[in-house]
Design a protein around this nucleic acid. Structure first.
Lengths: 190, 190
DNA sequence: CGCGACGTTGATTTGCCTCAACGATTGTGG
DNA sequence: CCACAATCGTTGAGGCAAATCAACGTCGCG
């Protein structure tokens, strides 16, 4: 039932059975269908999601109707609009399911209580955000200093399991290029 | 002597005087000269720096000799190569002073002890990395979806105090463009 | 079956880069 | 304090990376 959830937690902290029980009492389970929105822009992001099955995308949309996928969240990842979640501001990112799947949510209020009750969780999320920080830092460096073709090659190496799961349209957006140009790059590499 | 340091801490947590004393005992003060390196690529990043005066840059260099500035750290910011610091791997980012200034360092080992002694610090750095995460997320979205001209305009608005402090060469690198093209953009905007 | 979204391909345009030359500024050694 | 070198910012010419626009075949879905 809890799938990968407690394994994921155990990567950084160890909970005793009382703490595990306490945490379990705050979890919400949710089945999501392909294309189902979990967060819309302008809403207040009240929940942080752990992906147990399926894949989410976090994205922003622009005036002209275009979208930018900022992150794919397959199994074992976490997803939320962090600014909206922590500051209570309207979300500037949207979250949507790319596949049917299952997520586990923790509500903001519950998380704040949990931080008090299980201080180790503060450590867990410190490490989680620290890793996310490093991840984005590297992607930013790549985006600023390398060509689309190199970024696509690296994406292939780093996330081979996603290549055939996610449409090229969405991968192109993640790489910051148009689907047309991604198609050209792919042809070149054959 | 502690300058902006404890104000910065107080933005997210409150320390009692015993805790403050304990923290003070772990701080290292350092004067830095313009162009002085604080971390070189390949070294193990053992210290996280708080900038009290002056300005640092965090950057990566590429095979061809080019550099990419990933972040400027003026007064009241923190700087380290987070992956190297937390995992003990060789640094992939370098840190260097852009101006004469003063920094306050906390060593990794001391920080780990401090996390035990003052669990609130875990919260402080959780929030710090959470904010950094959000900052990079936004910059990545910008880098992927907007033109250099727009990015320069936003940089102007967001960091007006840095525009006349940092050479165009470094700003261009931060924006992911060449100094030549930045010059063209600036001319356009007159 | 028929419609709409997707991926491909070609023609053309645009954003940004490279290379090179030139003053202006900064830094350095004598 | 001057002279010289080195670095910086600007400008112009030309080139490449990636975008736009448009047309077409394919596929999934109602």
């Amino acid at each position: 039932m809890y799938g990968l959830f407690f394994q994921n937690i155990a990567k950084h902290i160890q909970l005793n059975s009382a703490e595990e029980l306490q945490l379990k009492s705050k979890l919400h389970f949710k089945n999501v269908a392909k294309n189902e929105p979990l967060l819309k822009i302008g809403e207040h992001c009240r929940t942080i999601y752990f992906v147990d099955k399926g894949c989410l995308r976090i994205y922003q949309n622009h005036e002209n109707g275009d979208e930018t996928n900022i992150l794919f969240c397959p199994e074992n990842w976490w997803a939320c609009d962090i600014m909206s979640f922590s500051l209570g501001t309207p979300a500037t990112y949207a979250i949507e399911a790319l596949e049917d799947g299952e997520v586990i949510g923790i509500d903001l209020k519950d998380l704040e209580e949990l931080y008090m009750e299980i201080p180790k969780l503060e450590r867990f999320f410190r490490i989680l955000f620290q890793n996310g920080f490093a991840l984005y830092q590297n992607r930013l460096t790549l985006a600023l200093s390398t060509s689309a073709e190199i970024r696509y090659t690296l994406f292939n190496k780093q996330y081979p399991m996603l290549i055939n799961r996610i449409s090229q349209k969405h991968i192109a957006s993640y790489l910051g290029i148009t689907p047309v140009f991604l198609s050209i790059i792919r042809k070149r590499k054959l």
